[in-house]
Design a protein around this nucleic acid. Sequence first.
DNA 1: TATGAATGAGTATTCATTCAT
DNA 2: GATGAATGAATACTCATTCAT
Lengths: 212, 212, 212, 212
Amino acid sequence: MARTADPHRRQSILDAAHSVFARKGYAATGIADVAGELGIGHGTVYRYFQNKRDVAAAVLDRALERIAAVVTAEDATATRSLAEYRAQVERIGHRLYELFAADRALGRLVFHDLGAVDDDLRERLHAAHETFAEYTAAYLRNGVAKGFLRADLDVDTTARVVNGMIFEGAAQVTRTDDPRPLRDRWIRAVVALMFDGIAQHGELGRSEHGPG
Amino acid sequence: MARTADPHRRQSILDAAHSVFARKGYAATGIADVAGELGIGHGTVYRYFQNKRDVAAAVLDRALERIAAVVTAEDATATRSLAEYRAQVERIGHRLYELFAADRALGRLVFHDLGAVDDDLRERLHAAHETFAEYTAAYLRNGVAKGFLRADLDVDTTARVVNGMIFEGAAQVTRTDDPRPLRDRWIRAVVALMFDGIAQHGELGRSEHGPG
Amino acid sequence: MARTADPHRRQSILDAAHSVFARKGYAATGIADVAGELGIGHGTVYRYFQNKRDVAAAVLDRALERIAAVVTAEDATATRSLAEYRAQVERIGHRLYELFAADRALGRLVFHDLGAVDDDLRERLHAAHETFAEYTAAYLRNGVAKGFLRADLDVDTTARVVNGMIFEGAAQVTRTDDPRPLRDRWIRAVVALMFDGIAQHGELGRSEHGPG
Amino acid sequence: MARTADPHRRQSILDAAHSVFARKGYAATGIADVAGELGIGHGTVYRYFQNKRDVAAAVLDRALERIAAVVTAEDATATRSLAEYRAQVERIGHRLYELFAADRALGRLVFHDLGAVDDDLRERLHAAHETFAEYTAAYLRNGVAKGFLRADLDVDTTARVVNGMIFEGAAQVTRTDDPRPLRDRWIRAVVALMFDGIAQHGELGRSEHGPG
DNA sequence: TATGAATGAGTATTCATTCAT
DNA sequence: GATGAATGAATACTCATTCAT
């Protein structure tokens, strides 16, 4: 079986797998590579995990938890004004950007490798997307309730749209060699789009398909 | 390289691979599965493609071309007003949504499986991201030049932000069982965010970190 | 079936196979390589030969015939003196050496590749060895009968020993980059060994195990 | 490289490969055949050898070492007279004959199969030929120096000629069903040729091409 | 007669997993 | 607990051979 108590060693295996999976890709990584990274026998991995897929699942879960920790760090209902919400979005953006910049492997794992392992892991990624969308929706819903966001906002859909912007930033970090300089530009662009719009003041952009 | 010319057979192999890769995942798919889908001998696949990875590369390229065809269908410089640009974004959104809704496999391939095959294919995906960002940037640059978009817009970054929203919609389609009903909500949410903002009129959202 | 009349094309296929088999080795050579050398379709080869092994068999037979033509060029019973036999050995040595030097592929085929194809071809090689031994034995027997070779000569065994020397020369040609300069040294060494012995005159070399 | 140390298992794999390669031929032998001969899993072979070719190379090297052990067992410089050298040649002949008679596979491997595997193995065979020629040359050189062999002997070439005779005997053993009865005839024929010559006493065999 | 597209038998090789030590 | 030797399922790929054109 794969139940063992030493949590430190279990964590170190996940650390190694996180790094090696990101470096070589899940498929190209052998359990021996992970064990080799730690200098332990590869049989040992099987004392902590059922199988290779189980390692990947744990790596993914831990990665998603670290992302969730940032997303859920703020209190959605505490915000009382548009300015407060704007500041909140900036803070979350900062923290996410720093998270992905500090661990380049993170993005490779959640945006590329681990979603391709099997249906179950893809499902977990989707579920995480849903959860993150729920959180964003809570912020928006709070804003609508407090009156500083538009009353006719499609909260659920807009939450996903907003998350799309934010996670595109995270993906960008993963793709870019030296992502730090881009951080402030990125956050500023997201926040400006959300709160200032792209339109020049005085322009009218309603098309015939727009909301009535 | 492809050793043989018959483009019909080659296309049918790519069709089958597109479908089977999306259904089972690249790693879990054997060349025999692809050939079996067509009722041809698996050796035949090797008359048209060097190896399995080569099939995946061709599937990815074709998928990206189909997306690019939608993205590049509009003329960025033709737009003369905010209303025209808004209509353009709506049209592109429609077409992309329909593309991904009509072929559920497409999203699975470009958002999950084929980016995990190897470094080269991941690189091609990144390059496509860049290309798409260039296109969006051209729209924005045109708007700034014509004066209907904000003069201080960070065009390159905003282009990526906008693409993030749009492709999150495509990813959403891929995840959702019956995506059609969501189409108009999605497009409306994106367009509203870009052109109307989320703020209630009269609210002021400038934080201390915001621009100017 | 594999019976076709055009003997010229059949020969050209054998020429190509002779050359390609020697260059790449039998196992590493594909029928397509042989056909490609001639610029003909590889299906065509099967109109002249049953299969790949059949090509190898024909190549081997032709090679052995060319060797046999040299070996059998002289008349064993015509020799009347030791000097005549010595001259005969020199002539055969010259011709064999030239044969293998003119066609480096020949040695590779008969000494290496084609004997490893299967049991049947190895058997044909052995049979050729036997035939060649018969020829050499005929010379020796003639010499014993005519009285210029030792009466107690073990003709059959000595014939093989002599052939061993001669074919080692041929193998040497195959191994050496520029074999021509060695030709005369080689022939002189063989002839000297056979007719002059290696012993210094006056030395006695009979051991206790030697013939009584 | 060999990944594992257990020399016993490694040797047993070489033993099995030696036998199966000789029985079926290298090309027709699968790694599964070798493993099956030992009753081990075929994956196990890959713990001791990189690949099939690597097994063949090790089999060849070991075979050549066994032959070399016989060739190098005598001390070339110890011989002081023609009779001693003659005895030496007889001993080496005996040992080689016994070696090849005791292991019929040996000859098939070194004379047929393993030289056809690829260029590298053929090269190793050639190198072994050279080494063996060096040894024989050392004997001859010693004899010339000590004055019991002809002063005008072409030592290097004659060494190859002598080896040709000797290895033809070994090849003969490999081809013959019951080789033992031939052993003494063979050795006697070689030794007689070298030390007594084939000419009837009193005959003169100098041709016009012979040494002056 | 010549061709080469199609075929699929055959095999080397990898690596997740087990389990005796 | 830890190890790594042993295992064999799984599969990409080759190429001799066939046969419709």
